[in-house]
């Protein structure tokens, strides 16, 4: 089942001039975070200096496993001399990142364009 109450997170990936954008829509929880993790790691695999912008404008909820996926992606990006930035954070995900004291770890931008340009 992919729709209704248990809908999966939707991931759209596109290449922009300043980097690769992952647009997320839906809740990132134990059921869906492995998909996000794999998408980020696939983009970083065998590439160096890649910039990834995770647009979270469509995400109202993220759990600790989703946060772990973002942190793992950030660490992998650093190892390959790349960047992983967050854009368009809603209040829910921002609360979770603040509470887990990880918000300052990320470059967070108000807009996707701003994250690509910086």
């Amino acid at each position: 089942m992919t729709g209704g109450v248990a809908k999966a997170v939707e991931i759209e990936i596109w290449q922009a001039a300043g980097g690769t954008v992952i647009r997320l829509a839906g809740d990132v929880d134990m059921a869906s975070s492995p998909v996000l993790r794999q998408a980020i790691l696939d983009l970083l695999r065998d590439r160096s200096g890649t910039t990834i912008v995770v647009n979270m404008g469509g995400v109202e909820y993220i759990d600790s496993s989703g946060v772990a996926s973002l942190v793992e992606g950030l660490q992998q990006a650093r190892r390959s001399r790349g960047k992983l930035r967050l854009a368009c954070l809603n209040d829910g995900p921002r609360d979770v990142l603040e509470l887990t004291r990880l918000l300052d770890l990320f470059e967070v931008h108000a807009t996707e364009a701003g994250a690509l340009e910086s």
Partner: peptide, 17 residues
């Protein structure tokens, strides 16, 4: 307290916080 390098424990921290 959660730590960037420690992958476990964030969920329990979130519950209790």
């Amino acid at each position: 307290p959660p730590d960037e390098l420690r992958s476990g424990g964030r969920g329990i921290f979130l519950i209790r916080s």
